[in-house]
């Protein structure tokens, strides 16, 4: 092969000698700018701004925010309604997360089994998740309809109840409705979390246990559940974060009612901010909300970064 001299290749000597990786670092910062800008403007600034508003009185009657120190916090922490909505939130979050994880795990175990038609099931599983929230809310509102709802029809014909339950107009029924609907929507995602966890399972271990005479339930209890424990913790945190943030389904199904029976923090903040236009109070409840979320997010982030 003929050798070609340096000049033919159009290579230029570097002009200045900076550190070898300086260019890389500059590039890294450069490509971070768009996302960082978007983040700062749309997420971080609004967050700090909203948080600081909790020290101000700022309602539709005030031209300018008036600094009032911790007064909002005193009001909020002594307001039985706010505390009640915190409890409502807790009921919704715990109920939904528990149900979702139970069904999500069971469904993942079923979908892990190789049976005829599994592919169809797996594909269809995504369905509840990709429906717009309003649509999901409609579907369940119609199913749970107090007069013509199919759930009532089924309960009646099975002899479980004697007369129709007015799900959406009694306190417990409304809570059941939003938990059921939210669970229904979340199962697909949790199934895929657990399925991913199962895929990392050592199959030979199961085979070995089976040779040792372990039955299906023993294998689930002694091998699979321990293996999934880390996945459990992380998805649990993730599920609770998501459910704490949940607004759409609840608003579309019950609007926070009847009266205040399903008024969770997200609904409370929305109503304070965009129905009463009391931004100071909305922000203050928001602070309470942030502090509820914080330990979960910290836990989640820590487990994400543990391996790095």
């Amino acid at each position: 092969m003929d050798m070609v001299s340096i000049k033919d290749r159009g290579l230029k000597r570097p002009k200045t000698e900076r550190s070898l990786k300086a260019g890389d670092r500059r590039f890294a910062y450069l490509i971070l700018i768009p996302a960082m800008t978007a983040f700062m403007v749309m997420v971080f600034y609004p967050f700090v701004d909203a948080m600081s508003m909790s020290f101000f009185q700022f309602t539709i009657y005030d031209m300018e925010p008036i600094f009032i120190g911790f007064d909002n916090f005193v009001t909020v922490l002594t307001d039985p309604y706010v505390l009640a909505s915190w409890v409502t939130t807790a009921v919704f979050v715990v109920g939904t997360t528990l149900l979702t994880m139970t069904f999500g795990l069971a469904w993942a175990l079923l979908m892990y089994q190789d049976f005829h038609g599994r592919a169809v099931f797996r594909t269809m599983t995504l369905l509840p998740w990709i429906l717009p929230s309003t649509v999901s809310a409609f579907v369940w509102a119609w199913m749970l309809n107090g007069k013509y709802g199919v759930v009532n029809a089924m309960l009646l014909s099975a002899g479980i109840v004697d007369e129709n339950i007015q799900f959406l107009s009694n306190d417990v029924g409304a809570m059941v409705a939003i938990i059921l609907t939210r669970t229904w929507i979340s199962i697909p995602l949790f199934m895929s979390f657990f399925l991913a966890g199962l895929q990392g399972m050592d199959f030979q271990q199961i085979e070995a246990a089976r040779l040792d005479g372990a039955g299906n339930l023993t294998i689930v209890r002694r091998l699979i559940l321990p293996h999934l424990k880390p996945v459990f913790l992380v998805t649990g945190a993730l599920g609770m974060i998501g459910n704490l943030q949940q607004f759409d389904i609840i608003y579309a199904l019950t609007g926070g009612g009847p009266i205040r029976a399903t008024t969770v923090l997200s609904i409370e903040v929305f109503k304070q901010a965009f129905e009463n236009w009391d931004l100071g109070m909305a922000s203050t409840i928001g602070v309470l909300w942030v502090f509820t979320l914080m330990p979960l997010v910290v836990f989640y982030l820590r487990s994400l970064f543990k391996e790095d």
Binding site: V43, Y45, F47, V269, F270, S283, G286, L301, L304
Partner: peptide, 24 residues
């Protein structure tokens, strides 16, 4: 790098409803 990443990820504890108060 690490602080910026943590900052972005910690956004999950900023409730969307709270952000909306300022975004509006």
């Amino acid at each position: 790098k690490k602080p910026l990443m943590l900052l972005i990820l910690s956004a999950q504890m900023f409730p969307f409803g709270v952000l909306l108060i300022s975004i509006y």
